[in-house]
């Protein structure tokens, strides 16, 4: 299972990077269209913004796996052994629940706005943009479960010590 999760994270990171490059490209186009005569790219800012949204939602999910989101960990770090394990599992479960909301409501919104079009590119469906949310949500759920599994595994193997 760990191999699968790592593989998923590997793909997601590259997806995020791809969207990052896409929005960099669009912003460059936007600057160029301002200063180079003859170049007018109306859709550049809008496409850049949506690629950016994909980047952030993918990145946020990846950081769930790496457990690097900003948080107050003073109290959890003071706990030891079993109580720390419990606290960490509660945290992972909370993230799992949040991922579930993102996935569920994100799916609803994606369906709701599926047929709507972008302002500057009427031929592109808005659904492709909203899709970032459920994708982020479901991967967050997967990573949260993987983190629970890792923590329990660690706890058993190292007899109560958890890797920070």
């Amino acid at each position: 299972m760990k191999r699968w999760i790592d593989r998923l994270e590997w793909i997601q990171l590259r997806m995020a990077a791809g969207f990052f490059l896409l929005f960099i490209g669009c912003v460059i186009l936007q600057v160029a269209s301002r200063y180079l005569p003859g170049v007018t790219v109306l859709w550049a800012p809008e496409v850049a913004t949506y690629a950016f949204i994909w980047t952030i939602f993918m990145g946020a999910a990846i950081m769930v796996r790496r457990q690097e989101h900003f948080r107050f960990d003073m109290l959890v770090n003071r706990l030891k052994g079993r109580s720390q394990l419990v606290a960490r599992i509660v945290i992972h479960m909370t993230i799992l629940a949040f991922g579930f909301v993102l996935f569920g409501d994100g799916t609803t919104l994606t369906q709701q706005f599926w047929a709507w079009s972008l302002n500057s590119l009427p031929q592109v469906k808005q659904g492709y943009v909203w899709l970032a949310i459920p994708v982020s949500g479901i991967t967050m759920m997967i990573y949260a479960i993987a983190n629970i599994r890792d923590d329990i595994h660690d706890y058993k193997r190292k007899e109560g010590e958890l890797t920070p």
């Binding site: 706005f113 047929a115 709507w116 079009s117």
Partner: peptide, 28 residues
């Protein structure tokens, strides 16, 4: 306006005013 129209669609607001361009997301 973009967001207001979306909010109306999902039901979190009931009355909005928008330019034709933003309604055009749904009806070109």
């Amino acid at each position: 306006e973009d967001e207001l129209v979306q909010n109306l669609q999902s039901g979190s607001v009931d009355l909005v005013v928008a330019s034709p361009g933003f309604m055009a997301q749904a009806v070109k």
